[in-house]
Design a protein around this nucleic acid. Structure first.
Lengths: 165, 165
DNA sequence: CTTGGAATGTCAACAAGACTGACTTAAGCT
DNA sequence: AGCTTAAGTCAGTCTTGTTGACATTCCAAG
């Protein structure tokens, strides 16, 4: 495995290797979303609601603007999702104290309960995959994923990571 | 980094570590699809067309049924996408010789041209990420992704991989 | 050999979730 | 006072998923 990196013979960078990586990414992402999707299908919610709940939980008090940049959607799209979550009492929207134009978002108890249910399912699969692959593989996994992000998103990712430790 | 695996102290399996993995997966997948999406946005096509084109190129002569299992969508959903691709002369559908119910799918020259354009863009990002992370990290990346797939999809993934070598 | 069920694919209608564009309201800032 | 920013809304479109109904073809049991 040593000489795969030497000279011009970078075997792990062949088109066929890259193609396999692309397909692995596709199939793995399907697995990654499968469990939460199953839970949400019973309720009137979808993947969009899951994403909103995840990041509100991760960064409580985040503003609508922050959230839509993080999720990479328009405010109209996010608003539809947020409105139903607020109506259903899963998310609370508080007017900002410093800047009253801003709305700060928090999960209610019920919201936290659903978040727990969803992330338990998703983490269980992640944990199984991590355990099966081992810590070295996990480190590599994280490195490649990070290198694949757009620079702007890599910054957002790190900001979240550091706030969560 | 050695004692992270010893005893009960599996630091890489903490909830916080798993959560970071989940977020890495989310942000990385955004990057993963960004380049082809940009190309397709100009045409009347979307991500679904890309996926169909990718796998028809990968397994020429595949049937509609094969393809929809691979993609994990209903035949009705796939059919709409296929119809436009056939109308636009990117995909050819040939009635099966052994079983006339089946349609075997092939890319036309124009289809192959678009496939090349899309996968060049996607592979460029993948190649940059692989190069930045190095071969060891890539091996780990692939291991974790594979462990994350549903068993059925892992089988499909391997079948494709072996046919492509 | 016929007939009924299973498999394959197509057509139509609908829903979720993304988008753009135009507009309002409220608050902050120069 | 006037410009900008944050949030929310309304309307319309597009992609892509869904179900339901239907046509065609194959195969196997009577």
């Amino acid at each position: 495995m040593g000489d795969v990196t030497t000279g011009e013979n970078l075997l792990f960078l062949t088109d066929e290797q890259l193609r396999q990586g692309i397909e692995a990414m596709f199939f793995a992402y399907r697995g990654f979303t499968a469990d939460p999707d199953r839970i949400l299908a019973d309720m009137a919610y979808g993947r969009a609601h899951h994403r909103a709940i995840h990041f509100i939980n991760r960064a409580p008090g985040t503003t609508v603007n922050n959230l839509l940049i993080l999720l990479g959607v328009t405010k109209q799209s996010l608003n539809r999702v947020l409105r139903t979550l607020i109506e259903d009492g899963l998310v609370e929207s508080r007017v900002g104290t410093a800047d009253k134009r801003e709305r700060h978002l928090y999960l209610t108890e019920a919201g936290e309960e659903l978040e727990r249910q969803l992330s338990d399912a998703q983490r269980a699969r992640m944990r199984a995959a991590y355990r099966a692959a081992g810590p070295q593989a996990v480190a590599g996994f994280r490195q490649v994923l990070e290198a694949m992000m757009d620079p702007e998103m890599r910054r957002k990712y790190h900001a979240l990571k550091d706030s969560g430790t």
